[in-house]
Design a protein around this nucleic acid. Structure first.
Lengths: 188, 188
DNA sequence: CTAAGCATGTAAGATGTTACATGATTAT
DNA sequence: ATAATCATGTAACATCTTACATGCTTAG
């Protein structure tokens, strides 16, 4: 089972849904740490139907199909969740550019860092809103909300760390301008 | 130009190298935020030779070729670095499993978090060693070291944030055991 | 000599993105 | 009506991993 099939099974374990709705959940609820496109989700659902993990059920609008987990699908989901997470290949374009910052220059580097900072700021606001909502659901007696809060907290820690790093790095980029040799010093 | 070609050009901008040595640099110096396999690097070098960005030069052992940036390659490198970083699709298998933590159970979730914590701890140690080395190079007059330290600092902030989140999350997983209804309370 | 490390490359298959094509339903 | 949103799917292409096959060089 691949990662896309795993997340589709997980989403369908909550309630039956159309392919479109699965993607909505992935973007909305899991978007902070997971992404899928239609081009992956629809073929994944086809495979899951073919292997009996999932079956179409009533309840959608005409011309659309909602899918529900079968018992076999639930078993496969639990297997997949129990397997160790697949590590993701690291690929941070900002840090790559910063590592070769002497080619790009300090001003362009500062621009990149400011973009990271701004995105982290927006992210913190989004996560605060999500936290408020999920805390409400927890208070309303939704026991899974306690797990949802852990993932929100992960995002918050990460975003705050990014913010702190950005401030530190912007100071470093501004405070020690490139050794362009101020008049009076003799570069050698 | 794709991301692999960009990083190959960037590495070759430092000094000419074999494909094998490019990969060594990517793993060793950039490994904290970038990854490439031979299956990507060798074809990328072929394409860069074909389009004149890179050319074979003398200096390797027999049967191997070292490659150097051409003027055109340097121009393409600067273009590529100036382009906005390509955002990476998020895919955190640990957070996915935690989000659906009620399916996996609190004990398995705690195991996952402990693994993240242990990896973060190792990472902090590695980064401390890297920092010491790069600070030495900065003191020895290597001006690019100041950029290298910024990327090390990013790793440190991220790893410390991960550590803090893990401790918090382990406490949450242990402190509020699953609402299995202690004797005396009436679940409804 | 022989093992470890240096070095190159390809082929198959998995994975993932993007754009396109199509059409139903709902709200304004 | 008509625009926005819901909904499904495919085809082309790009990307990436993994395993395999091969052989040189250097240190012990």
């Amino acid at each position: 089972m691949n990662q896309t099939e795993l997340v589709v099974l997980a989403v369908l374990s909550v309630r039956p849904a159309t392919g479109y709705a699965v993607r909505e959940v992935v973007h909305g609820q899991l978007g902070a740490f997971w992404g899928e496109s239609f081009g992956q989700i629809y073929p994944a659902i086809s495979r899951l139907v073919a292997d009996g993990s999932v079956q179409p059920v009533e309840g959608g609008r005409a011309g659309s199909a909602r899918y529900a987990l079968t018992a076999a699908g639930r078993a496969r989901l639990l297997d997949g969740l129990a397997a160790p997470p697949v590590p993701q290949r690291p690929r941070d374009g900002t840090l790559l550019r910063l590592f070769f910052g002497d080619l790009l220059g300090p001003a362009a580097c500062a621009d990149l860092v400011r973009q990271v900072r701004d995105r982290a700021g927006e992210r913190i606001a989004e996560l605060a809103a999500a936290r408020a909502e999920v805390e409400g659901e927890l208070a309303a007696g939704e026991p899974r909300a306690r797990y949802w809060l852990m993932t929100i907290s992960a995002g918050e820690h990460t975003a705050r760390a990014a913010l702190a790093w950005c401030e530190e790095t912007l100071a470093a980029l501004a405070g020690e301008p490139p050794p362009a040799g101020p008049l009076g010093t003799i570069p050698r």
